[in-house]
């Protein structure tokens, strides 16, 4: 007999070694997340998967499941904290949805919809960041990078290339590219790399395909992320 815990009152079975996130996704449930991808070791950095257990907030992607836990996720208090985290992510970069090729298939946007975020609330940083279009097949728009490190992990752990790293500290943290010029076109990055297909936002985008699926007919235009899940599972359909 498998053990269980409860998510917002719903019984969730789990196996030894699974995190709360693993078990909930396996049971067809949803806890919002940006830096989490089941193919990679949990990172616990974006904090939008936070849930409450006995009044204490933990990230569901790193907290081990255990027998009899009462996990609170879909409450107004938790959603409000997630909204504040998302608002900070929005004002820290330059996320201009009406002018973004990824709009409608962007996990940052979809998770913000899920939490009911209507506005960024905080004062915008409007940071000066660049766009790197030096690669023939892919573009990197640093304005949209949320430092989830999925490309870093994919390039290191699956592609065996270490094309990406996070450099700097605090507000100066930024995505760095391993090439003599620091540009993507001079790195060993290739369109078939895992790292090219894990970005939850519009920071790493394929070229020449921007509007193949029109705005308004995209994945999260049709269904909420809590129903259809992460964008990478639908990549062929929406890219």
């Amino acid at each position: 007999m498998s053990k269980t815990f409860r998510l917002d009152g719903r019984e969730i079975p789990f196996e030894a070694g699974q995190t709360i996130m693993d078990a909930v996704l396996a049971a067809g449930g949803y806890i919002p997340h940006l830096c989490h991808n089941p193919e990679f070791a949990p990172h616990g950095s974006c904090r939008v998967c936070l849930v409450a257990i006995g009044g204490r907030q933990v990230s569901a992607c790193t907290a081990p499941a255990s027998e009899g836990l009462e996990v609170e996720s879909d409450s107004e208090a938790i959603q409000a904290t997630r909204r504040a985290i998302l608002q900070m992510l929005f004002v820290e970069g330059n996320h201009v949805c009406p002018a973004c090729e990824k709009s409608g298939a962007c996990q940052l946007q979809a998770v913000a919809y899920y939490t009911g975020m209507l506005a960024p609330h905080f004062t915008h940083f409007f940071p000066h960041r660049s766009v790197d279009a030096s690669h023939p097949d892919f573009i990197i728009d640093f304005n949209r990078c949320i430092l989830c490190e999925l490309c870093v992990r994919a390039s290191r752990d699956q592609d065996g290339k270490r094309v990406f790293a996070i450099s700097g500290r605090g507000l100066d943290s930024h995505l760095a590219i391993d090439s003599p010029s620091g540009r993507l076109g001079d790195s060993s990055f290739a369109a078939g790399d895992k790292a090219a297909h894990v970005c939850p936002t519009g920071a790493i985008l394929p070229k020449h395909r921007g509007y193949e699926t029109p705005i308004g007919a995209r994945l999260y235009d049709r269904e909420p992320i809590s129903v259809v899940g992460d964008v990478r599972a639908h990549e062929e359909e929406v890219a």
């Binding site: 929005f90 330059n94 996320h95 201009v96 949805c97 009406p98 002018a99 209507l118 506005a119 960024p120 915008h124 409007f126 000066h128």
Partner: peptide
């Protein structure tokens, strides 16, 4: 009421802030 994207977050005109 902030009515629409530009009122809410500056929108496309705020791209000149770069």
């Amino acid at each position: 009421v902030a009515f629409g994207a530009c009122a809410v977050n500056g929108g496309v005109p705020a791209m000149r802030n770069q």
